[in-house]
């Protein structure tokens, strides 16, 4: 992907182009412009679309967030009042805590399990293709379907999990009722769906690690475990960073699973907001309470939260495998 490939007409003043000195200079100027501008022109469709569907909504959301803005109602400019109100709003921080809590509860075991799975699938085992496809299978089921089925499994009265627990004389658990139980239920939905996806990505990266590294290590007497920690993990670093980023963004915008777990689209996330995430909080404010300005402010704070979360995770994962 070098630049000169993209330039359509090489600026070569020849006999067939009867141009004078000034003309040549102009054409050279055009050529320089061409050389510099064409790449930008070629990548511009992406940026145009990004401007329309990315930058504009971001900016407009910010503009809305500075207003007391009611859906199909009045709009008054109030400056940063929405942000001030939001920072002191217990319900918002409750949603933040829920989001972070479920993120930690789902992502850490998910990535650890994905790593172990990928390592296992990288071994010479019987029916390797079957297993590799198998772990990816949950990904092609719809999120809503997954959430509906899991919500029924976790049902208080007729759910299979409570039935199973009742065999050991455990009382029926109302999974929606407590923070811990709701978080566990939602985390299992997320992990069921995404563990295989991450495992396949890590597996792909593992296969690019040169075999001779392992051979050399084996000759030097390194155990399989040692090889995993000293070769596999450091070599996977960029891929792990990628999966952590994607999981962070996914985790902090968690929405469908807790909404379906609620059983109705009120966006309340349980009777006392036990599992209301920030994304649900935003939708509730905008489309249940019709308070657009407040919702827009919350959306901006979520954006900032994701930036911070990603930076923190980056600083952690950067240290993987040392920086020798």
């Amino acid at each position: 992907m070098t630049l000169h490939v993209d330039t359509p007409a090489p600026p070569r003043p020849g006999p067939r182009r009867p141009v004078g000195h000034r003309g040549t200079e102009r054409s050279r100027g055009f050529a320089r412009f061409d050389l510099r501008a064409t790449p930008y022109f070629l990548v511009s469709p992406y940026f145009l679309l990004f401007a329309i569907f990315g930058v504009f909504p971001l900016g407009y959301t910010f503009w809305v967030s500075l207003h007391e803005w009611e859906l199909a109602g009045d709009k008054t400019l109030v400056g940063f009042d929405n942000y001030i109100e939001l920072i002191t709003d217990g319900a918002f921080w409750n949603a933040v805590v829920n989001t972070l809590g479920m993120f930690a509860m789902s992502t850490i075991p998910q990535l650890a399990l994905a790593l172990v799975l990928a390592n296992a699938l990288n071994k010479r085992i019987r029916g390797r293709l079957f297993f590799r496809l198998g772990v990816l299978l949950p990904l092609i089921t719809s999120v809503v379907a997954v959430a509906v089925v899991f919500t029924q499994l976790y049902g208080r009265d007729y759910g299979m999990i409570n039935w199973f627990l009742s065999l050991f004389d455990v009382d029926a658990i109302n999974w929606q009722n407590q923070k811990w139980s709701a978080w566990v239920a939602i985390s299992t939905m997320i992990d069921w769906r995404w563990t295989g996806y991450n495992a396949i990505i890590l597996l792909a990266a593992m296969q690019t690690i040169p075999k001779d590294l392992y051979e050399a290590a084996a000759i030097d007497g390194a155990t399989a475990r040692r090889q995993f920690w000293q070769i596999t993990i450091p070599m996977l670093r960029p891929t792990i960073i990628f999966t952590v980023f994607i999981s962070t963004i996914g985790g902090l915008t968690l929405f469908t699973e807790p909404v379906m777990f609620d059983g109705n689209p009120t966006m309340a996330g349980g009777t006392t907001g036990q599992y209301q995430t920030v994304a649900m909080f935003i939708v509730k404010e905008a489309f249940r309470d019709f308070d657009f300005g407040y919702a827009a402010a919350a959306a901006w704070l979520l954006f900032v939260l994701i930036l911070i979360g990603t930076l923190i995770n980056y600083s952690f994962t950067r240290r993987i495998g040392g920086s020798k």
Binding site: N177, T266, A268, G270
Partner: peptide, 19 residues
């Protein structure tokens, strides 16, 4: 409508034991 929805959530919470 908004007030009704919110306060009834509290009733549900009370009935189910989270409040």
């Amino acid at each position: 409508a908004q007030v009704k929805t919110s306060v009834e959530k509290v009733l549900e919470g009370m009935d189910q034991g989270s409040i």
